[in-house]
Design a protein around this nucleic acid. Structure first.
Lengths: 239, 239
DNA sequence: GGCGCGCGATTTGAATACAAAATGTTTGAT
DNA sequence: ATCAAACATTTTGTATTCAAATCGCGCGCC
């Protein structure tokens, strides 16, 4: 009767890791806004756990840079300044370049095909102006390239940094022209990947990120746009 | 009377962070050997604290990659395989290259002078075959270059990865020729930094690390040397 | 004599309890 | 009326307690 696939798999992975996962989701999806305080007891009730594993999770996410801990004053969701975002992007650039370079030497036909599929869907999302889907596919493509690098350390560093700026990247809406240029970059990316042209692809990845940096800078300069992006959910604008 | 400088500064920085610091030291200095289990109660007694902050610290260091956590089976000091070390070095290369590139555009005369001083002392240590001092200065130089990049995110990622492979780097003893080549690299490093030749320096940093990778690979291939290096303290060899 | 099984001891995982710090509010004085 | 100080409340930090899982060992069985 009990055809449970993995009966305990959820409970198996120590509670605090489960909480880390959930919390990370909440932060990355934007449910928890930057600078908002993290109330421990409230979260405990929400997750139905005690404070001990929650606090362990908080410490972990703080080390990851998603939360910031003020001694005796609790944790709050990290809010990156413009320069911090710029700094992280300056790190991501070389990482993506290195990943792409490695990927050129190891990527399989299957991985390439998957990336192309995601790419086509991303272009589709672009045409449909479906920003959410565009963004998801974009991320998927970059992750897949990093995965194809075959370097686990590279992937995990990339994922961590990428996660930290995800919100900023997402909330910084592109102009039509910037968006078109990004699509161009991605088209070229596929071509160079197919050609296994490591050098050119590495350079492209660096430039690609650099333009993202410019876009985000612009978003920070426009205060209302930044506020909107990083802040509360989109919807009916007040008055 | 009480001319305490920072009366509580030690207690101020929440206990778990203090423990993280101490534990990190113990791991990095090699007091705790790779693969050795971390007994919680024993450490609690050693630090004179309870298990809660210790466990928070353990979770943190596990996230950092210095410890590995096995569910219900405690933590143990991470022991990197050869491929893991190689992977991390593959990440460090581009990071150092990027850092050096940035540093060329921002480094001050004072920072440069400090690096040169460290460099001279490192060369001195080399001549005296003082490996410990050589290693310390080496680290100092690389850290200083990264610091001169002015990119905080880059520095922290670098420090983390660098720490994880520190033991492997240290324990992989160079041949005389390799050592001489490393010195050459460093000489050139200083020259290029002075010239602010970002492109050439970036390339040098990549190559510099690449040679380190070869050295470490060789150390892993020689099983006794690797065992010796990663394992117990040097001293009288058995039989 | 070797191997599997079960029991006890140890160790980890999580929850609760207690203490200290910070925040917000009220009250009193100027 | 305003400001400040003290108190009460909330929230964090740490310790202790309880439960569950693992490990080691001895016993019995094949």
């Amino acid at each position: 009767m009990n055809t449970f696939a993995q009966p305990q798999s959820i409970l198996r992975r120590s509670l605090h890791l489960e909480v880390v996962q959930s919390l990370r989701e909440l932060i990355l999806t934007g449910e928890f806004e930057p600078r908002s305080r993290v109330n421990e007891v409230a979260l405990c009730e929400r997750f139905g756990i005690s404070r001990t594993p929650l606090r362990e999770a908080i410490k972990l996410l703080a080390a990851e840079g998603l939360l910031e801990l003020r001694p005796n004053r609790g944790a709050r969701v990290a809010a990156l300044s413009e320069v911090e975002v710029a700094e992280i992007l300056q790190v991501i650039g070389p990482l993506e370049a290195a990943g792409a370079e490695l990927a050129c030497g190891r990527i399989t036909e299957g991985e390439l095909a998957a990336i192309e599929t995601a790419h086509l869907d991303m272009v589709d999302a672009w045409k449909a102006k479906d920003y959410d889907r565009y963004f998801a596919r974009n991320r998927q493509i970059h992750d897949a390239i990093m995965a194809a690098s075959g370097n686990g350390a590279l992937q995990s560093v990339y994922r961590s940094l990428s996660g930290r700026v995800q919100r900023a990247r997402f909330s910084a809406h592109k102009t039509d022209e910037q968006w078109a240029r990004a699509i161009d970059d991605h088209n070229l990316m596929i071509i160079l990947l197919r050609r296994r042209d490591a050098t050119a692809l590495a350079q492209l990845m660096r430039d690609h990120i650099k333009s993202k940096r410019i876009i985000i800078s612009a978003a920070y300069s426009a205060p209302d746009a930044a506020k909107r992006g990083s802040g509360r959910l989109r919807g009916a604008a007040p008055s």
